[in-house]
Nucleic acid binder design. Structure first.
Lengths: 216, 216
DNA sequence: AGATTTACATACATGACTGTATGTAAAAGT
DNA sequence: ACTTTTACATACAGTCATGTATGTAAATCT
């Protein structure tokens, strides 16, 4: 019952966040009470309410504690399409390797209702998504300039398509909790998806070498 | 207070389902009480509990009352890729036109926690998805045989990709409740997505007419 | 060293929400 | 015509979760 030092307090706070994430991902956000979390963290509700105003506040902390999957990695890679693929594959690997990340996205995509106090979270997610789309669009533009993808396609639209694809992929990957049917296919899915994008490049090279196109 | 005839009872049941769907889509499943639904349907909880065992039972009824978006339409269309596009576009149109359909999918994709009694629903959704994937894979196979898409790609994997794309599209479409940013782009997104698939066909034709490939 | 704040644990008040039990009048069966 | 269901409305009991108020001992401040 001795009062904790500042560092110890930070630790219990961190533990509460971790346990909240776990319980959320198992029982869903609405279904877990503050006491469920407290019990798992081996504290009382008093501790939880001291660190967080309410459940949605705690939920925000859980999110803030988790890194975003939707960001480009491998900045040294020079091929834009290859870099995008590595980023997506890396996201999958993080999902597999980092249990906390997997739990958080499990909550976000299957175990949470974006209503009331949680609506801002959805908007925030969409904002992050739009950010990702813009960065991917840049990649696609340079790839287009390098003649790797069809100059006819709208790169911004293409980036949105990729975003849709990846959101769906994440959702289905997380749905396959038994890791039986979908998860093994996820990585080849990404590979083939991006191979198609540059498939044009191969054919276009063959074509343009024999018959240059006129600008439209 | 007069007892209702069988037909009238069926009507109140239907009304309860409709109101449940509306309230679910606005407040989320966990956040709505049986009385919320009863009030909206202008009955008491007694009526609701007479027709449905509990909330999850009512939720199943709401789902059963809604047609699936994930099915091929336009069976007369002979071009497989065109048929797929028409099906996806049709799904979007139904989402826009049929308020009940939109509400149900709003619930499924943003306002529901697939936990406990609701876990079977997720599995059922995935099953329906796998069914859709198989049908789309058939379309892709015939398209491939007709030389419309790259013979190198795995059509089953391609169908899963399309499923991912569409799931993500649905989710993002539904997130844009203001119908401002994403929804206007959804239809062109589908169009461009499927145009890319047959882009290979065009180039391949050009190439093969000038320089026939050898079989590998 | 004393005063003050911190980091909780404990206790309390309150309010949903659920499920069931009971009542009831009319419809449906015979 | 009489009995039995039906289709609810009403009433009741009980659980559970929330938020706050209070207590407290030690850490931190001055």
């Amino acid at each position: 019952m001795a009062r904790k030092t500042k560092a110890e307090a930070a630790l219990t706070r961190q533990k509460i966040v971790q346990c909240a994430r776990q319980v959320f991902s198992q029982a869903g956000v609405s279904n877990t009470s503050m006491e469920d979390i407290a019990r798992k963290a081996k504290v009382t509700r008093g501790a939880v309410y001291w660190h967080f105003r309410n459940k949605s506040d705690l939920f925000m902390a859980v999110r803030a504690d988790t890194g975003s999957l939707l960001q480009l990695s491998h900045p040294t890679e020079k091929s834009p399409l290859r870099r995008l693929e590595l980023s997506l594959q890396n996201a999958l690997q993080r999902l597999t390797g980092e249990s906390g990340t997997q739990e958080t996205y499990q909550v976000i995509l299957w175990k949470c209702e974006f209503v009331g106090e949680f609506s801002p979270v959805r908007d925030d997610l969409m904002l992050g998504g739009e950010n990702f789309v813009q960065e991917v669009a840049k990649l696609y533009r340079t790839a287009q300039q390098e003649g790797q993808i069809d100059p006819a396609v709208d790169t911004l639209l293409l980036a949105r398509e990729t975003f849709c694809f990846f959101v769906g992929l994440l959702k289905l990957w997380l749905a396959d909790t038994a890791a039986q049917s979908f998860r093994p296919q996820a990585s080849p899915l990404i590979t083939q998806y991006l191979q198609q994008k540059q498939a044009w490049g191969k054919h276009a090279l063959t074509v343009s070498r024999q018959k240059p196109k006129s600008n439209s």
